[in-house]
Amino acid sequence: MAGPVRGAPVLAARGLVREFRGFRAVDGVDLDVAEGSVHALVGPNGAGKTTLFNLLTGFLKPTAGSVRLGPHELAGRSPEHVARLGLARSFQITSLFAELTPLQHVELALAGRTGLGWRFWRSDKALRRFSGRAAELLEQVGLDGHGTTPAGALAYGRKRALELALALALDPKVLLLDEPTAGMGVEDVDRTVRLIQRVRETGDRALTVVMVEHNMSVVSSLADRVTVLQQGRVLVEGPYAEIRHDPRVVTAYLGDSNAAH
């Protein structure tokens, strides 16, 4: 397990609130994610983890509060803008284009970032100039050799690896992973943990990762810091070793045996 890293916060939320028709799904959350750290968001179902994710990435507009990524205020920006500023996300439910190949997926992601935007008539040859980088990214997530299979035909674990490659294609400052091991068997979970460790260490400096994760063994092997959410609020925050025995956390998880394994 990596030691606690306390760099300056690269991603910081202050007083985030999101109401749905009077119900506060996220209710005044402060979050500081240190540069180069892996920060896990845990908590029972309905604690507001996914809502918080959507607030951070622009898929939901906060009712109140701010989100800063380095010098940029993110609250109120569109998802595509947030992504281009360097906050990349994966989705809880596998979300890929069934008919595109992994190579095409990554090329599309690379093209989106470079914002060739309006150049309409550029043929898909223009995308192919990214193919070198795309092949590299696929290799990084262990998908070399699967570059030309339609994504719809990939095995589940490989689909999730491809999603990771897509997020990495954005060359993010912070990577947000929404339940990266959801629905996986033990072997795939181990492989995914190793994969996340490996991709973090590939660049010049360690990539900052925020992840929602139910699987506590994954949290313990990856996370430097853990924020426990309950009913839309931060219940407790600290290194995994500290929070795991915190009586408040134990109580919060009672009745959610699902999450505690």
Partner: peptide, 28 residues
């Protein structure tokens, strides 16, 4: 099928959220 705009339109049609998460401005 053969141009960038076509690829974006097809991508946005199939998975609008993922397309936006890839930094592509679908609304435009």
């Amino acid at each position: 099928t053969r141009t960038r705009v076509g690829m974006i339109v097809r991508a946005a049609t199939e998975r609008p959220e993922l397309t936006r998460a890839l930094g592509i401005d679908v609304a435009r």
